[in-house]
Amino acid sequence: MRGLGRVLAWSYLVVVFLFILLPVVSLVVFSFQATSLPVPPFSGPSLRWFEALFADPRMLSALRTSVIVGIVSALLATVLGFLAAYGLGRYRPAGATALRAIIMTPLGVSYLVIGFGLLVVANELALGRSLLLVTLGHIIINTPLAFAIILSQMREEHANLERAARDLGAGEPRVIGSIVLPVLLPGLLAAFLLSFTLSWDEFIIAFLLAGFQVTLPVEIWSSLRTGLDAKTNAAGTVVFAISLIVLVLAYATNRALRKGRT
């Protein structure tokens, strides 16, 4: 492609990029607004709304809650996903294909329906809404993903290493600790970090199942009721920044681990 076609192609790229980045840019820019309404004209830069955000005990508590729910649910999903991927991928027990399908099914169901299902169970057992329920909900949406990611990282040649270790007298815990886990580390980290960001971002399950103590997306949701507010922009910018940090972390560790291997 050359001449006019090239110009058109690049212009199209720029236009779509404008569309894609427009909401993020306005979110971030107007979080530095000096006045309270996050709309043009821009009156900043000012850190006023970030100060207000970090002085708000509800937002801070929601932030802490989200981090805890994210870490706990991501950790458990990764452990469950790893055990299942290793068990089904390496030992190929009878019915492995069916078991794999069962573990993957929650992936095909809307979060709304999963959250609603847990709400019905909680009602049936007369359990109050709680963060424990939210965490369980996040475990079930993330386990299939962690499972799929880790399974995709398992290679036949790793099995030889494991066999060699067993031949040399290592017991199963030793084989898992010294061979399987180190070899799968990039996959495990990817599964953990992706699970964390999905839990961190998840709204509807948390909204349905959280009691008095809520996660950050739910807290932001309640702050939306007051309409457009530069403080909500600041909260959104902080959420975005933390997601980006996790993403960069994931990318960097993965790169470092791969480099170390080759």
């Binding site: 030992y91 027990p93 078991l99 099914t105 847990l118």
Partner: peptide, 23 residues
């Protein structure tokens, strides 16, 4: 082979309790 089942059991149990039973 049984060990494969044992390793997959926690994830299967979680899927059953947290997903299949609710459905």
């Amino acid at each position: 082979r049984q060990q494969g089942w044992v390793l997959a059991a926690p994830a299967l149990l979680a899927t059953a309790v947290l997903f299949l039973v609710p459905m």
